[in-house]
Amino acid sequence: LVRYRTISKIPQITLNFVDLKGDPFLASPTSDREIIAPKIKERTHNVTEKVTQVLSLGADVLPEYKLQAPRIHRWTILHYSPFKAVWDWLILLLVIYTAVFTPYSAAFLLKETEEGPPATECGYACQPLAVVDLIVDIMFIVDILINFRTTYVNANEEVVSHPGRIAVHYFKGWFLIDMVAAIPFDLLIFGSGSEELIGLLKTARLLRLVRVARKLDRYSEYGAAVLFLLMCTFALIAHWLACIWYAIGNMEQPHMDSRIGWLHNLGDQIGKPYNSSGLGGPSIKDKYVTALYFTFSSLTSVGFGNVSPNTNSEKIFSICVMLIGSLMYASIFGNVSAIIQRLYSGTARYHTQMLRVREFIRFHQIPNPLRQRLEEYFQHAWSYTNGIDMNAVLKGFPECLQADICLHLNRSLLQHCKPFRGATKGCLRALAMKFKTTHAPPGDTLVHAGDLLTALYFISRGSIEILRGDVVVAILGKNDIFGEPLNLYARPGKSNGDVRALTYCDLHKIHR
């Protein structure tokens, strides 16, 4: 019993810090008490220290592992850092350059016999395009090294910054494609005289377009951006097909006994025919423009016929181009109408809503002055909100995010209106959640004399007048207030005048 009563005193000691020596009952000389009392004092002292730490809000209350900052290894790049964003855009520009100039170089340097010394005699450094290609190869190699040090988000939505895990993730992902696209074939085969082989191998750079397509997928929600990307894709495919079309004609031209190829026909049409040795002929500019003209006309199913396939190889390629053109029509131009419709969806919704308003007016036989006010209010409210119901949009977000959005939407009023000066951010967040926005066209009466005042109004834009009878008592403008002081009276009061809008007004109100 003594032991039980001794232990039962522990909660009292913990909360009230009572010393055991003052209790005459606990001072009985028993061996059990002498053993338990020192333990009680020690526990009391420890609990006292913990309570003191909690009340003082000291940093040592938290466990040590929670006080440590997340460790980022040296030379690790955050995937959302500004440097990584700028670097990704730079790589994107280099990939676009590669997609345009690599097929052009591979096709127009394929057994090209233009006048001038061969590239091997001039030297590697004197070729501007080769120098640019070398810079692109170096940048792609540097990009691989950067990807080995860039964080990523795993399946659990955690940012991984450990170098080993980053390397394994990159090896399992895009490393092989990036490595093949970054191989400097110019340096590996330079001086061997195989410019045709170098041009063909350099087309491996186009593998990076797969990554670019995935990154550009984030802009699919913007109709104008999608339309622009589709047109660029169409032009890029036409450019690639033009390079292939020229390569076919250029390879067949020296081996044909009869002059029936499209390059021969082009030379005869523009007065620059090929001679018996295969030299001469149109310039590279004429060849490229004509090839691009043929691919565009074939892809769009126009086909004027002034550039036509004559050999079997050219006919087979033309059939493939027609098939590609039909697929592009289905996948690209078939979506253009939907994209344009999405661009004008706001206008369509406006006309639909206006039609419903006019049908309501016609069905209920609203008189002319009231009908005009109804239409003007709808037009003004639509121009202010673009038909978007803010309350319906915010309803799907958590309250903390709703408060931040409301604070942002009402920031101008909260910053410049005098009653809100000096208020804490928590108070402003709470008030912003209570605001209701209303609009009024010129001549609209917001409050009639004798109406119950259940709200306090803040003028965000425009001006109003307060009338008693036919006498203008006051004219209020931006950041002015009218209405009933909230919670100042037990019952809502009545208006002693009319409140009429002089201009288009936007008002925020808080109800009782």
Rank of each mutant, 00 (worst) to 15 (best):
A69M: 04
L374D: 01
L323V: 10
G261K: 01
Q353Y: 03
W75F: 10
L428S: 04
I405C: 05
A392I: 06
L90S: 04
P419N: 06
Y293G: 01
S337A: 10
K285R: 13
A99G: 04
L428W: 05
G223H: 09
V159S: 01
A242H: 01
V447I: 11
Y384A: 11
H448P: 01
L134D: 03
R208D: 01
M139C: 04
V180A: 13
Q341V: 07
C126N: 01
F108V: 01
A430W: 08
W262P: 01
I284N: 04
L236V: 04
I77E: 01
T290N: 01
S345G: 05
P163S: 06
V136T: 06
Q341P: 04
V212N: 06
D444P: 01
A381C: 04
G123V: 08
H169Q: 11
P103T: 04
Q415A: 10
L327T: 01
D186M: 11
G346C: 13
K287V: 04
H380P: 01
R342E: 08
Q415I: 12
H79Y: 01
F140W: 03
Q402I: 04
T76S: 04
T445V: 11
I96V: 12
H73P: 14
P184E: 01
L207A: 14
L446V: 08
S326E: 04
L374W: 03
G281C: 01
L129V: 04
V100N: 01
T113I: 07
G191P: 11
V142K: 02
A182K: 01
L230R: 01
F397S: 02
V336T: 03
S276Q: 11
Q379A: 08
K272G: 01
Q415N: 08
D137Y: 01
Q353S: 09
G426Y: 01
N275W: 01
R165W: 09
W240V: 01
L216C: 09
D133E: 15
W75E: 01
V131D: 01
E157Q: 14
S277A: 06
Y377L: 01
I77V: 07
L236I: 05
S345T: 15
N410L: 06
S161L: 05
L201E: 01
M328W: 03
T98K: 03
I284E: 04
G325D: 01
Y344V: 04
L327E: 02
M231G: 05
W262S: 03
Y65D: 07
K66Q: 15
R358L: 03
K215D: 03
K111Y: 09
R74H: 07
A238I: 04
G123P: 05
D217F: 05
L134R: 07
L92K: 03
T385L: 03
F140K: 01
A238N: 01
L327P: 11
